[in-house]
Amino acid sequence: MAKIVGAITTSHVPAIGGAIARNLRTDPYWKPFFDGFAPVHAWLGKVRPDVAVIFYNDHGLNFFLDKMPTFAVGAAPQYTNADEGWGIPTLPPVAGDPHFSWHLIEKLVGEEFDVTTCQEMLIDHACTIPMALLWPTGGAWPVSIVPVCINTVQHPLPSAARCFKLGEAVGRAIQSYDADKRVVVIGTGGLSHQLDGQRAGFINKKFDLEFMEKLPTDPLWATRYSIGELVEQTGTQGIELLMWLAARAALGGAAKTVHSNYHIPISNTAAGLMLMERMAA
């Protein structure tokens, strides 16, 4: 059976793509952020996942407002990055795993998560930047992926509690897959930031740090908040913490933080990183 080796949650700020392209990893502005990934690289080298299930939010590359699914699951043989309009370099395509995707889709719909299925799906920076951060191999990706997109563009958004339940269902689906796969679950986005309105530049370090502290040991903590309350606490884009909740829920059970990093600012964002593992039973 497939096994979940751990969960990784990370910010996906577009400017990171520019910094990677210009090789600014050791630049004073960027170093505190990029240095946070070294322990994760060591861990990935040790556990060697075959597949990554990635909870992310599309920013107007694959989905427009004409058709906006709340939850969408990729079922493509390959996922391609493309021009997002404001100029970060595109990254090489990533292999899919359609058989595994359809297993997840069958299980999710069976559990009454009525997801949109995508046999063609462009992946934006919210998928590719975490890939490039976790596997800085210049695009020779060592994993195939199943992207799971959660809408954060168009309100109403699914509640934190609902995203958590989706994550739990994804976790059960992964572990019921009859193949010897090592699966890492990834949640991308956040932490607190707001790009739009007079409140642009809003960052909430106190809330972020509490969220990160609770995530492994008391993961339901954030699900007590409504979407409106979470936007108030974390900003209009900080709501991307929904991806972190889903990834944590997929990991399941009692968990521990293996590594974390938090740095303000990267672009307009409080950048966070966590690596979590299940506690031994």
């Binding site: 563009v153 168009q154 309100h155 739009d196 309105g197 007079q198 409106g228 309350e229 936007v231």
Partner: peptide, 19 residues
């Protein structure tokens, strides 16, 4: 106002009306 909307200063939630 959409059901999830609340008044947050300096913030416009992109709800159905905005869409």
């Amino acid at each position: 106002q959409a059901g999830t909307s609340r008044q947050i200063p300096g913030t416009t939630l992109f709800d159905g009306a905005q869409a």
